[in-house]
Design a binder for these strands. Structure first.
Length: 503
RNA sequence: GGCGCCGUAGCUCAGUUGGUGAGAGCGCUCGACUCAUAAUCGAGAGGUCGACAGUUCAAAUCUGUCCGGCGCUACCA
């Protein structure tokens, strides 16, 4: 059984969950749900990044311990993800003991293998940023470009990671694995970074307490990135279950935003290599949601919009669908309230939801409420087969927008098929049965294929069609084969699955 | 400065290795239907595929230049 291990980034606890985070998390959720239907052995991970100066500071400001602060804020992400129906298998926190063990173990390996050394770091340092700057990046008189405050010349003893030692091995990895980073544009970006040449980087801090102690030097904690990235290994047992790690690690897929490309696709693979891990993860990189439209651009930035603002209007499933359908995975794309509502109304209210309604009503009136079996040679059979092939390929390439487009095509063509045959004008009999059997079957398959994005509504539709069991347990590709609907099941009507939303 | 990305109908976007008269959804116009969530279906209008110049029998697709927007070149989480 193929394995598929998918991760979101761990989100920094000081941030509030917003639709940018949500886009990433829902993509991972939908893709992993698709893989579950394929019968793959799936593990999906999300979590929170909880160390670092910012957490330490906001804890002080609020009169809490850093751990208390982290607990509070981590819960916001848990709640947000429950609110969009994420079916993650694990939620990791970097403050957990299992993670401390893994970080110390993995970096100790790097140390033992000779890829860590002590050196003096000198540079212009902004206290408020807690970061060093290159001279060229500072404003006049060595002022910090962000805070406009004077930077100080600092000298610090630090532990360095020998990133430069991995230049060639990283290049070899890129050469050997053409799809190590998708979409391809981001792979080019990463290769560009490589081509410029890699410098060793500092990986510890002695000025902060809120972090994971360096095992060979009590005075230091690891710099946040060297702590955070390792979460992906922690979660599949790097420190405490080597067998489990062996099994899952080769199947790792990291879904990330383009802003963290460098750390993930260059530093992290090098860290793995330094620790003697052979298998490299796959990376799927997306762009930003840009805030357009009227209603929300007034509130400024996409990072100010909580997912709950959208689920209140569109429902959980409606939001999930519109989010993935309208924003191709990879490039930056426009996000607007108006287009989300429009997408919801078009795809889910007018097409999919309405199809379920009209089918149920006509079956009720013309077939005594019992769904007839589909025709083996229905013209819809070919439509479904083609749509499935397109959707399956798109999911495989991590292109949910394309997959959903292909899936909705089934719904559109079924509406067209009904319109052409007008079964509501016919007297009950074989002719009506033939048309309605086909329509139910197409609706059934569309429901299966929509489950990864609209799981709740899909289950509800499944029951209305009178089908047994759950959509979740339907196996692909078999469940998408034409003719799966047996006929003779009671079809029921009900309130609209997706009520129209007024713009 | 260097590297890279983007610029296709009013809007949001598709367009594999260059090849039938350039597409989808939405919006718009007209019509049909009335089973259905004023939903659905059909027809139509609408683009010199950023500009210019090349390569080619043939380019939105390849090359160069230019214009416009953006990213990276940062130990910002």
């Amino acid at each position: 059984m193929p394995r598929y291990y998918a991760t979101t980034p761990i989100f920094y606890v000081n941030d509030a969950p917003h639709i940018g985070h949500t886009y990433n998390a829902v993509t991972v959720d939908a893709v992993t749900r698709w893989h579950r239907m394929l019968g793959d052995d799936v593990w999906s991970l999300t979590g929170t990044d909880e160390h670092g100066l910012k957490v330490q500071r906001s804890a002080e400001e609020n009169g809490r311990t850093p751990q208390e602060q982290a607990d509070l804020n981590s819960d916001r992400f848990r709640e947000a993800w429950a609110g969009v129906n994420l079916a993650n298998d694990d939620f990791i926190r970097t403050t957990e003991p299992r993670h401390h063990q893994a970080v110390q173990a993995l970096l100790q390996k790097a140390y033992d293998n000779g890829f860590v050394y002590q050196d003096t770091y000198e540079g212009w340092y902004c206290v408020r940023c807690e970061a060093y700057y290159e001279e060229d990046d500072l404003l006049d008189d060595h002022h910090c470009p962000i805070h406009k405050a004077p930077a100080e010349w600092m000298t610090e003893e630090n532990w360095f990671f020998k990133l430069s030692a991995f230049q060639e091995r990283l290049e070899a990895w890129f050469e050997a694995v053409p799809d190590n980073i998708t979409p391809g544009g981001y792979r080019n970006e990463a290769m560009g970074i490589l081509k410029l040449g890699l410098r060793d980087v500092s990986m510890t801090r002695s000025s902060i307490d809120w972090g994971i102690p360096v095992p060979w030097d009590d005075d230091h904690v690891f710099y946040v990135w060297y702590d955070a990235l390792i979460n992906y290994a922690t979660a599949v047992g790097y420190a405490d279950d080597p067998e489990r790690f062996e099994a899952w690690w080769p199947a790792a897929h990291h879904f990330i935003g383009k802003d963290i490309l460098r750390f993930h696709t260059i530093y992290w693979p090098a860290m793995l290599m330094a620790a003697g891990i052979e298998d490299m993860p796959h990376f799927h990189v997306h762009g930003f949601l840009l805030l357009g439209g009227e209603k929300m651009s007034k509130s400024g930035n996409v990072t100010k919009i909580a997912p709950s603002e959208m689920t209140e209007v569109l429902g959980v499933d409606g939001f999930r669908h519109a989010l993935l359908r309208d924003h191709p995975f990879g490039p930056d794309s426009e996000f607007s309230y108006e287009s989300m509502v429009e997408r919801y109304n078009t795809d889910l209210a007018n097409n999919y939801g309405n199809l379920i309604s009209r089918v149920a009503t006509v079956v009720g009136k013309k077939c005594d409420g019992v769904g007839p079996a589909p025709q083996a040679d229905s013209p819809l059979a070919a439509v479904v087969a083609e749509s499935y092939a397109t959707a399956a390929e798109a999911w495989d390439k991590v292109q949910p927008s394309q997959a959903l487009d292909a899936t909705i095509r089934i719904v559109r063509d079924t509406n067209e098929y009904l319109q052409q045959n007008e079964p509501w004008k016919m007297d009950p009999g074989p002719e009506v049965d033939a048309v309605m059997g086909d329509a139910i079957e197409a609706a059934r398959i569309a429901t299966v294929l929509l489950w990864p994005t609209i799981p709740e509504a899909a289950e509800a539709a499944w029951k209305r069609l009178g089908l047994d069991g759950t959509v979740a347990e339907q196996p692909l590709p078999a469940a998408a084969d034409w003719g799966g609907y047996p006929g003779g099941l009671t079809v029921s009507t009900g309130d609209p699955l997706f009520p129209r939303v007024k713009g």
